[in-house]
Simulated assay, not measured.
Amino acid sequence: MPDHESPDEPGRTSRRGALECMIWAGTGLLWSLEGGLPSAVGLTRALAADKPAAPFTFLQISDSHVGFNKPANPDALGTLREAVARIRQLPEKPAFIIHTGDISHLSKDREFDDADQILRETGLPLFFVPGEHDLLDDERGRSYLDRYGKGSRGAGWYSFDRQGVHFIGLVNVVDLKAGGLGNLGADQLDWLERDVAGLASSTPVVVFAHIPLWTVYPEWGWGTQDGARVLATLKRFGSVTVLNGHIHQIIQKVEGNVAFHTARSTAFPQPAPGTAPSPGPMKVPAGELRGVLGITSVSLVRGSEPLAIIDTPLAG
């Protein structure tokens, strides 16, 4: 199991609906589960909250790109350190952290070492899935798997249970072609079907992978070519939340009982789909980086109605 403590035994939780509010933070995303259903609480709000956090929370971080030092953010390690400092100030600690890939920028041992040192300052269990930048070594991701893939299958996929919620970490960045869509492959998809076969349809499911599992912008490779099979496998479940990174910005949608969310990077922004010749690190004017890595509040309405989003800059 790719964390550092044994996961809790799955429990039974009544489905009472999700929290009314979700807040997104560019430097991290605090997820809370109430009645077994995930919603998000931004770090800024969580730090200022008078009331204790919900009984079960977890944190999402994505696209740290440790080792990146170009003009879009000359100190990617520093902004990751800033995110971790916020986590450590939370009055109620989350149960664990999910990192949705691109921990490193070039898969160098030094980059992984630096990321590990900072992330472990949280004192929390850590779960990872790789991004394409984590699999650039000559041994098809051996450096990543040796560090983060213990107990996983194949290229690093796995599942675990907490508080009656089933978590599934998928890998869609193996043999990724430049500008090409992500792919999962038959072996992983067959494993997924077996993994969820024994679960009751009332079990809340959280899926996390690096590249979005739905097609955000195919011209830039922002999607997963066989992601539809994942959604078909999970169609029978009443609550499915899909968490991704890769595109360094928040895009969300809801299809039936499936809610899709992409997270901002802790390193640098990327342009909105189609607004630039190609994706890549986007430089913003001096002093505005943390404004781009802002906070987005999302109100979740019970049922299948769409989410309402309000963006607030982190530096505002």
Rank of each mutant, 00 (worst) to 15 (best):
R142L: 13
F208S: 08
L289C: 06
A308H: 13
S143A: 14
H65P: 07
M282V: 07
V242M: 12
R81F: 10
V171P: 05
R153Y: 12
A155K: 02
D138W: 02
S32G: 08
L234H: 02
G274N: 09
I211Y: 01
A315E: 15
V41Q: 13
S299I: 14
V284S: 08
Q60R: 06
D187H: 00
A46Y: 01
P218V: 09
S304G: 11
L213T: 03
P281H: 04
G36L: 04
L181F: 11
M22S: 15
P269V: 13
S201G: 06
W220F: 11
L293H: 09
Y217N: 09
T275K: 14
G36S: 05
P279G: 03
R153W: 09
V230S: 03
V205N: 09
V205D: 10
S107V: 01
S143Q: 11
R12H: 12
A276D: 09
A115S: 05
Q249K: 12
V206M: 11
D311L: 08
E5T: 15
G256L: 12
L37Q: 14
L314R: 00
T203P: 00
D75L: 06
P91D: 11
K235I: 13
R162G: 04
V292W: 12
I250Q: 05
K235H: 14
H65R: 01
